[in-house]
Amino acid sequence: MTAFLRVAALVVRKDLTVEVRSLEVVATTLFFAVTVVLIFAFGFVREGLAVEGVAAAILWITVAFSGTLALGRTFERERQADTLRALLLAPADRPAIYAGKLAGMLLLMALVEAVLVPLIGLLFQAPILAAPLRLAALLAAGTLGFAAIGTLFAAMLVRARSRDVLLPVLLYPMTVPVMIAGVRGTAALFQAEPDLDLAQFWTALLVFFDAVFVTLALWTFEPLMTD
């Protein structure tokens, strides 16, 4: 177990070091997320005010879009230098490598969400501070579910042709439960009178989803990444 955690931590550290030096993925993903929110604003703002109840949907769609972009870029970098092969050749547990990649992805998406949530609160008058801990729990559970499937799919698509278009094509139908639970749960928290029970139901569903898909990904990473 300690070896597993050590390998995962090393993979995270490697990814962070590469990222801190170039800021390529963080900078482009953050800017992309802000642009997507602005495009939604032009679609949904009438007479200077946002159409009611769109904030939750915009938040989660932006998370999904920018998450896809970040996943694609992160693994494209590994592919260009052929470093994913080196990583897989390392005498380490394959599932630990997956766990490290997933943790790095979660850190990146958490950073993007830390900018995204206040921005949406600001631009769409969403009450993001009505139940901040529950919103954070919902976001964390949803992001984990999205990233768990996304990391596995992006990793396995590294060698595939037309991977850029295939990643969203495979990822979006698969993560629809995350989108529904995330949007409904967040909408329940953004109501004038937050519906905490409903938000809790959706968070619980997401936690269950995470448990199943993280397990399944850890289990299938080895056979999927072996030639």
Partner: peptide, 8 residues
């Protein structure tokens, strides 16, 4: 998907 698509 190209080569390896069967496994993916």
């Amino acid at each position: 998907g190209g080569p390896g698509a069967d496994k993916l």
